[in-house]
């Protein structure tokens, strides 16, 4: 398998690809509407609003209303993309997400913009590191975390046709292109680099870092497989089981709390198998972040390529 190395030279804000694809879809299908909470700018919906003023429903700073309105539109045959900064969309409107969207089976696409620690210096009130834990616990809600602009675009298109409740985590922190011409494949991990010693399972902003880590580990004689797990729920359990038999350990990396997101989901598969493999879970361990930029905070919490490489090499050598 080819190894597309993350090029750090050019990086992208996934919200741009998100907005372009959404407008494209809206041109093709008049059922597509956007609902937002005074976030026309931060959700990158300026162009959408210009082109489809009637189909942009801005309820103001009112997330519970926003999600309820989205559900009402979905239950009336529309395909609403409900957009808001992820901490407020998921935190403020969690019960609406559970009752009005997931439990009611309303085909709403919840778009958590600027997730993780994208709002670095604004602090923990504006960070959304709990979202994956919260949402993964809700039955019937798909949780999708694209890794780069191309995958964001492809996931937006998939979500518009999914006809079921979806949460889409749309990154603001700039990332390199890593998925190449692979389409987003719902519920399936994609192997971005094959390897035989250790598997790194990454999502979102961590995918390019995992690829970089694998490249560096190879130089030290450790062969690392990199899985882009862009669907967190439902999880591609088969890919995890293959990683368990074909490699000797698993590292998970996510810009989220490790209590219930990607790492916890993978661990739940690993421990129920007959021969579990050792794991390292990289993420944030129930801590509020100190002040700093996103890049600084990722370093602070051990989420750099170097940290991933170290964890992978550590697992490979411990077992050797």
């Amino acid at each position: 398998m080819s190894a597309p190395v993350a090029s750090a030279s050019e990086t992208f804000d996934c919200r741009v690809a998100f907005a372009q694809e959404l407008s494209e879809l809206a041109r093709e299908d008049e059922r597509i509407v956007a609902v937002c909470n005074d976030s026309v700018g931060s959700s990158n919906l300026v162009q959408f609003q210009k082109e489809f003023p009637d189909r942009l429903i801005n309820v103001g700073i009112a997330e519970q209303d926003m999600v309820g309105v989205g559900a009402g539109l979905a239950l009336s045959g529309y395909v609403p993309f409900v957009c808001g900064a992820s901490p407020f969309l998921t935190g403020r409107a969690l019960e609406q997400i559970k009752a009005d969207v997931a439990y009611s089976q309303s085909p709403v696409v919840l778009c958590g913009m600027s997730p993780g620690m994208a709002y670095g210096e604004l602090g923990p009130t504006h960070h959304s590191i709990e979202d994956l834990s919260w949402l993964r616990a809700i039955a019937g809600l798909d949780v999708v975390v694209p890794a780069d602009p191309a995958e964001t675009r492809s996931a937006v298109r998939w979500a518009a046709g999914a006809a079921r409740p979806v949460f889409l985590r749309v990154g603001r922190f700039k990332v390199p292109a890593v998925t190449g011409d692979r389409e987003f494949s719902f519920g399936a991990a994609t192997t971005l680099r094959d390897g035989t010693d250790v598997t790194v399972v990454a999502a979102g902003t961590m995918v390019s870092r995992a690829l970089e880590a694998a490249e560096e580990a190879a130089e030290q004689g450790v062969s690392v497989r990199v899985l882009n797990m862009s669907t967190i729920a439902p999880l591609d359990e088969d890919a995890i089981r293959r990683a368990m038999t074909e490699t000797r350990g698993i590292v998970t990396a996510e810009e989220a709390t490790t209590t219930g997101g990607l790492g916890a989901a993978v661990a739940a598969v690993v421990v129920t198998e007959r021969a579990p493999v050792p794991m390292r879970m990289l993420g944030i361990h129930r801590e509020f972040a100190p002040t700093g930029t996103t890049a600084f905070l990722l370093e602070h919490f051990g989420l750099t390529a170097g940290d991933i490489r170290q964890a992978a090499i550590g697992l490979a050598r411990a077992d050797a």
Binding site: D65, V69, G72, L73
Partner: peptide, 8 residues
């Protein structure tokens, strides 16, 4: 809120 969405 859901009814408002339905009315919209």
């Amino acid at each position: 809120p859901v009814s408002v969405g339905m009315a919209v």
